[in-house]
Design a protein around this nucleic acid. Structure first.
Ligand SMILES: [Zn+2]
Ligand SMILES: [Zn+2]
Ligand SMILES: [Zn+2]
Ligand SMILES: [Zn+2]
Lengths: 137, 137
DNA sequence: GGATAAAATGTTAGGTTATAACATAGCCGC
DNA sequence: GCGGCTATGTTATAACCTAACATTTTATCC
């Protein structure tokens, strides 16, 4: 991840459009949903979306949610720890969290067996605060 | 997860065939790869595989690896903690691990924001012991 | 500025992964 | 046997992703 403070400034047109669409959405979006939303801006083929997404992930500005086949804008400009995503299965809302201890735990678990970690995926499905309160009533 | 000790005994024909194919494989398998391997046993359509997989996951005998779009047989009959998968990007080998502290930390991170966790996905990509040793030479 | 190389984009086609919809067959308690 | 349930079979289609190749834009060096 070669992210720096100027990451957002060096974006190409397509990358900017995709990032903006993700930032404006209140949920993660699939590639084809992005394509739909960006057709007014001139997007015509899935590959345009996928290429921009790949580049944005490379820059650390966007994360892919593996269990949703969807992408979301990163919550901040810089973070050194692996993000933990909390995914509400009721309303679709996703939040990004960090925990220093977690990063250490993950390394510990795998290194017991000689494994060399590269990138980690942590996605927690459940119920967000809003949705949990509603159903408890 | 309504897994019990008799889970394996109450399997239907299709479920048994899919579980056996996964147990015999040395790597996680995709649904269509499973279909290929099970065609001699009479499987003809993807849905037969997907339905058996869903049921096996429900019983806790099979795990889905979200970042691989693949499935693997569970390493043991019972485990209470969320499994951590170490995925070697070189050889494709996947191992299942457990860590009480890690599971607790993940819950803690999300509960700070009022989130109620249901199921967690932890998949770590990297290099296994064998592959790491080779490239270091 | 002009030649060159690298990166980004456009476009078509095709491959992989997963589900919808509907029909059929077996099982079990009544 | 009847009704309800689960599992299965079958066809079609949706959703997600990439290969291949042509073109344009951008960066770099002289
Ligand atoms: Zn982030
Ligand atoms: Zn919610
Ligand atoms: Zn397991
Ligand atoms: Zn390996």
């Amino acid at each position: 991840m070669k992210k720096d403070n100027s990451a957002k400034q060096s974006l190409t047109k397509n990358q900017s459009l995709v990032l903006q669409a993700l930032a404006e959405a209140d949920q993660p979006l699939g590639a084809y949903e992005l394509l739909n939303r960006l057709q007014p801006s001139g997007f015509k083929a899935p590959l345009q979306v996928y290429r921009a997404l790949d580049q944005l992930v490379e820059k650390g500005l966007v994360h892919r949610l593996e269990s949703l086949n969807a992408w979301t804008a990163c919550c901040e400009d810089q973070h050194s720890y692996t993000p933990v995503f909390a995914i509400c299965d009721d309303c679709g809302n996703v939040t990004e969290h960090f925990d220093e201890q977690l990063a250490g735990n993950i390394e510990k678990v795998t290194k017991r067996s000689g494994f060399t970690p590269d990138r980690s995926i942590i996605e927690i499905h459940g119920q967000c605060d809003d949705c949990g309160t509603i159903t408890q009533s």
